[in-house]
Simulated assay, not measured.
Amino acid sequence: MRVMHLVQCGPTTGGTVSHVATQVTHQIARGLKVGVVAGSDGVLTGHCREAGADVFVDPTLLPVPAAGEPGDPAALLAVGSAWRPDLVHAHLMHAGFRGAELSRAIGAPLLYTQHMYNPVDPFLQAALAMDMDFPVIAVAEFAQRVIGKFLGDAGRVHYVPNGVDVPAPAGFRLEPGAGPRVLYCGRLSPEKGADVAVLAFELMLGQVPGAELHLVGTGPDETLLRRLVSALGIAEHVRFHGSVSGALTADIGADVLLASSRGDAASLVVLEAMASGIPIVSTTVGGIPELVRHEVDGLLVAPDNPHALARAALNVLAREDRGAAMADRARDRHRELFMAGRMVERTCAVYETVTR
């Protein structure tokens, strides 16, 4: 089978980038011929070339193409016509719109994966309005329910939970300090709630004065977060590490992860922390409660509540045995339900139904 992934992505890493990179690696290992069209050159294209995929770059898959690189809308149709996929698999809504065009032009079926925390996006709204009939993959059960109800056809929506491999040891490790190492890993953008993690950490310092907060990621809120850190007077306790591919491993040396998101479908950061045995404090948004069971695999709090986040993190740090026990159960849960191979197997089963 020849599968062409269309991916709305920038040059850095992120949830969708990690998801597609994992799918591509495993699909090639299973004998599929894989092509990848990415919105920009960067982490995803490098990984996919190394894995043996045919890789193309098309800026028209981006919400806002880079300055001077608007792209040619006809180029994707030419690439698709020449590559001749059996299936077009689009990821995120801008890729969905372009994937629908390509699907019509070359007569290959379209499959759409909805990765976002708001399951009904403009592409799905347009699909309903224009009576476009294609299957959808939802990465969380709540998203499967919402999309199925919106489309009026639950049978079109396949639940394929996100999965990750056990992260391999990497060179990135947090430097030991005088106190616990608190980790935030993810995009620095409003929906990910890094500001909530900073505010919670400032509250924590009263009880763990030697603690350090490590922010791993980049995004539009970085300047805002630096100003927030400075205004709170905690700059000496906070480290900005930028984008680090493969940062979340068992060797990173974090004492607790703050997953302070305001919206997530099925967080790959949380899954990687589960796989790596890092104690997790997360918000109860989207599909995260489907991954982490409160007081079993980690602690869950309401979103946008720095005080609750701080209390939960302090609870984990004060009772290391409890944090370790929850982390061990989370690791077991990952192995049972959320391994990458399981995700790819279920995705390929959907491929078979779509191309049959």
Rank of each mutant, 00 (worst) to 15 (best):
G35L: 13
M204H: 03
A313P: 11
V64D: 10
A29E: 15
H91Y: 08
R98I: 04
F338I: 06
V79Q: 15
F134W: 02
S243K: 00
T13W: 14
L271I: 00
L225T: 06
I28R: 11
E236P: 02
A349S: 08
F150D: 01
P220K: 15
P70N: 13
M132Y: 10
G341A: 02
M93T: 09
P306Y: 11
C348T: 10
V79S: 12
D54Q: 10
D121T: 12
V269G: 01
L92Q: 01
H91Q: 09
H19D: 01
G155E: 15
Q8R: 05
A327W: 13
T347V: 13
G286R: 06
D153T: 02
Y112I: 04
L232V: 04
A66T: 11
F123H: 07
H237D: 01
G186M: 09
A310G: 09
Q23E: 14
A67R: 06
P63C: 12
P167I: 10
A327V: 07
L44Q: 05
M4G: 11
F338V: 08
A302W: 00
K33Y: 03
L232T: 05
V43K: 09
E320Q: 14
V146I: 06
I147H: 01
G163M: 07
G242M: 08
V270I: 07
P161V: 11
G323R: 03
R98N: 09
P289M: 03
P109V: 12
V244F: 00
E320G: 11
A266F: 15
R84P: 06
V269P: 04
V229I: 10
V269Q: 02
P220F: 12
V285R: 04
V139D: 09
Q207W: 14
I106W: 09
A325M: 07
E50D: 09
G263H: 12
A75P: 00
R30W: 02
G298T: 02
D121L: 01
D264F: 00
A82I: 10
L87C: 08
A127R: 00
D264Q: 10
V136Y: 06
E50R: 07
V256Y: 08
M343S: 04
H158P: 02
R187A: 11
Q207N: 15
Q27I: 00
R104C: 11
A254T: 02
M116Q: 06
M132D: 09
R226K: 14
P70I: 06
P85R: 11
L32F: 15
N315Q: 15
G298S: 02
I278A: 04
G96T: 01
V55L: 05
G80R: 05
A105R: 08
Y184Q: 06
N315Y: 02
R356Q: 09
I252P: 09
L183W: 01
Q125P: 00
H5D: 07
R49W: 08
S245P: 07
T45D: 04
G15F: 05
M274R: 12
G287R: 05
V139A: 02
F338C: 09
R322D: 14
V120F: 12
N162W: 00
E191L: 13
Y117C: 00
H237R: 15
D251T: 05
R319G: 11
E345V: 09
S81M: 14
A197Q: 10
G80E: 11
P289W: 04
D297N: 04
R342G: 11
P11L: 10
V301H: 15
R84C: 10
A66C: 05
T249H: 03
G179I: 05
A327H: 13
P209F: 13
D255A: 05
A259W: 03
